[in-house]
Design a protein around this nucleic acid. Sequence first.
DNA 1: GTCCTTTCCG
Length: 810
Amino acid sequence: MASTLKTSFIPLSPSCSPSPKPPFQLPSKTLISPHLFSHPSSLLLELCSDQRELHRFLPLIIKNGIFTEHVIQTKLVSLFSRFGQLRQATLVFDRVESKIDELYHTMLKGHAKNSILEDGLLFFAQMRLADVRPVVYNFTYLLKTCGDNVELRRGKELHSQLIAHGFGSNVFAMTAVVNMYAKCRHIEDARRMFDRMPERDLVAWNAIISGYAQNGLAKRALEFVFMMQREGKRPDSITLVSVLPACADVGSLRIGRAIHGYAVRAGFELLVNVSTALVDMYAKCGLIGIARLVFDRMRVKNVVSWNSMIDGYAQCGDSGEAMALFRKMLDEGVKPTGVSIMGALHACADSGDLEQGRHVHELLLRIGLGSDVSVMNSLIAMYSKCKRPDIAAEIFGNLSGKTLVSWNAMILGYAQNGRSNDALSLFCKMQRLNVKPDSFTLVSVIPALADISVLRQGKWIHGYAIRACLDRNIFVMTALVDMYAKCGGVHIARKLFDMMDERHVTTWNTMIDGYGTHGFGEEAVKLFEEMRRSPIKPNDVTFLCVLSACSHSGLVDEGRRYFVSMKQDYGIEPVMDHYGSMVDLLGRAGRLDEAWDFIRKMPIEPGISVFGAMLGACKIHQNIELGEKAAYRLFELEPDDAGYHVLLANIYKAASMWEDVAKVRTMMEKRGLKKTPGCSFIELKNEVHTFYSGSTSHPQTKMIYAKLEALVDEIKAAGYVPITNSIHDVEDDVKEKLLNTHSEKLAIAFGLINTSPGTTIQIRKNLRVCGDCHDATKFISLVTDREIIVRDMHRFHHFKGGLCSCNDYW
DNA sequence: GTCCTTTCCG
């Protein structure tokens, strides 16, 4: 019905009209007196609440011949614009023969408020060609559109035109200019224009204050609130709403509370946007309870209030309460927006609750948010955090209008799920598609490179960071330090670390841990002492790194001292992993009884990391009794982990307790556990070569085995004795053969064949390096005069001149 | 009639 009227009144395009006659005739002006109809009809039109009703009136207007009325024409354009029907508005506009200035102005407003900026500017140019004099609000509307679209170039053009028309000291126009610069992230220009204003009203002050707040210059925003008061302007509700996010930004509870007091005294607290901003401020300042109190006391809430509260819980890690509130919001019939959905997804991601996440996913599709890119990006992050990168990838693949954030979310998702190669290839793909990576991209992809441990690509990404001017970004640099350390370049890592002007606590932790995993315990301790003297305070992770460094280097006394100092000097309460590190420290050093005693005296129930460390130590020092105790606790705590079973089996093997070995095997079979096959990787030129124990699939297999045979003879002559006690049931020569096909030996032989003398060889092994391979590698480094760096599951081994950096301590 | 305002993905 409505659509028939629509087409009968205004054809969608001139050619759409089948009739030779125009669908309506403009009646001659003389027939009807203007004042008879203009006023009441205009009022009637005003009553239309949507475009459907408006269309119903149209035949009446035409019938009564009042379309010629300027007031009616303007009203029609205005209403169509307000209902978002810019096309209809334009058609009305085009129909009018003698257009008054106001009609132009209304049409321009319609363009500015509805359409893309370009249409508005084009119309503005046409208006000028028609000799219509611009008025101030032509500029204010257009400038606002520039700000909303972050169109600085257009904004500047309008700014200069505005001055040419003599509006340079008009307070409305100049406030719009200030706002435009602020929205285009040119806050300094905004400030200059603000300073140049001959007079400033409250709105102008609010514009510059919100400008500072939105540009992350919270302190300036707060300063300006004080300044405006010195100039006799009283902050209104909009001032408060603008400045409260700034309080949250600097975490200034003192000022936040003062503003709260002011709001109460001025009666602004009753306004929904003010109380919502207060909720947000308290939540961001860490007072989630107070935020909730303010929220619960609000008599009127809007969806933003709910969103602020939900996100407040999500941000502070209380995902349970965030989800509870989200459900409550739905129960109360408040329609969620994209922001609500993102808050809920954030909570699901944090708690790893895939089930709930799926429900939110269904809900967002139902309410039509399936094409909101931000929401979809959150969804990608949620599925990744819930360990379902496959689903995330599917969503990413189908997502139209991917933004940089989408790419970053997916790359991070792969990286966090151990799919480093996928992360890397996606990073390459985005560049082929000319999506320019930013610091977030690098921070996501660098750990993936660190994981693959390929120094060449690591250096390449470092170069990339430099070219992209991201090499002064503290997060990127910290990731690079970590990456170099993990790629075996611990000294390069330190050089980078020293070059940084600013370091976060994470930066220090990364470097200390880098030294630790390379077995440079003394360096780690030295760096930690340096950190203690610096303004950066160590945190719980710092102590984990230091304790682990001490443990890897056998610095028992230092480790013990730091464990005490952690609580005494820094007030950091040890958690499970700290206890685990201590057990590791004592256990590796052979003080197994002491370690067991330490476990028994722990103030908290010992967990996996504690018994895991104990079991590992028992393997190194062949303590069957304590090893069994630790292992059986682990089987209860983590029944599906094959690694602990294998460790216990290896302890039995080393003691030739074959019946017990068989018992553990049966246990594993019953539980359906499989031993992870050992494999080693080595990079040559741009390729990564993978070797499994006994593998014969490599094209150079024959050469590799021949090389290995020759090598074994050579190192035997130098004193190497194979450690065969972990193999059973076969003759000694077969045992040796089995040992000699271990993946790390194959990789080393391959490396020796394919690199020139003197080159360092880098190997990566997925499990712990075995005792015999460790011994053999020491001898190989001696007889070939090569440095061999092996990164295993836990640490680095630098083999050189017959010795290893771990001092046989791993 | 025109200028300023709250929640937001990695």
